[in-house]
Nucleic acid binder design. Structure first.
Lengths: 135, 135
DNA sequence: CTCAGTGCAAACTATTTGCAGATTT
DNA sequence: AAATCTGCAAATAGTTTGCACTGAG
């Protein structure tokens, strides 16, 4: 029951918020489009509107429960914030998303930012790849 | 006169295309939003529509003359393709953009992709930073 | 002269917002 | 009951497209 997270964020424990949170947690996938979530809720006949899905996701993002990504393709992609930062590889053929974390890159990013007079606040790294056929 | 580039791309040498290309080359800035370009052309009374700006930029992108970036904020950002790949640091306060290139990161990206069974086709790396006050 | 290219308005896609009624506390 | 929240429809922002006309080759 992470309804605590909702309370902590000053959000009332409402049906839509709980259902969306559950969905984010109990899916095999980890990356969702607002539309995808809306469709999944439709199938469950949850009676939750698309506008609400967006509102809830935006609130979750503000509360740090969720991370919003801007991959190619126009739609925002949302993912539960599990705490451990990671970046993504996107399969350009299938759209499948793989996560990774690399300290060498993380470290280098901080150095580069500093070299240019910046304090690194955030970053976005997305690798677009094509699966290598393993015959 | 890089109208050769236009021809090479199978594009007729038209006023809009030439003007937009000039603008991309002869500006102090290097990163442009379609809207920005449209406004700059408006001031010059070039009589070029926003739709055309988008069409031309998209064609330039397909021809490899221009690169389209998806920074935060919804709008696409366009930049002349000078051949040397680079990534970007975005100043979260001012929106100013700084370019950089780092072989350590480039190299590591390829390795990571391969480790996960991918051939790296492209990537997007954006650092969001805050300028360090130099007192 | 022909066909690609253009301007304008209308269409589209993703997302946000206003408002009256429904829920949570 | 008070305040927040939600659904729906309408509004927005960015970008694309249809179509009749214009202009490059």
């Amino acid at each position: 029951m992470n309804q605590k997270d909702l309370k902590k964020a000053g959000l009332k424990i409402t049906q839509p918020r709980v259902k969306i949170l559950e969905l984010l947690e109990n899916s095999s996938k980890r990356h969702f489009t607002a539309e995808t979530i809306y469709q999944m809720l439709l199938k469950k006949e949850a009676g939750i509107g698309l506008a609400t899905v967006y509102r809830v996701l935006t609130q979750f993002e503000a509360a740090g429960l969720v991370i919003r990504h801007h991959f190619e393709g126009g739609q925002s992609v949302f993912e539960l914030n599990h705490g451990e930062h990671h970046d993504h590889i996107v399969d350009i053929k299938s759209g499948r998303i793989v996560e990774f974390h690399d300290e060498v890159i993380e470290q280098r990013q901080r150095e580069i930012a500093r070299e240019h007079g910046f304090r690194l606040v955030d970053h976005s790294l997305i690798l677009y790849g094509e699966m290598i056929d393993k015959e």
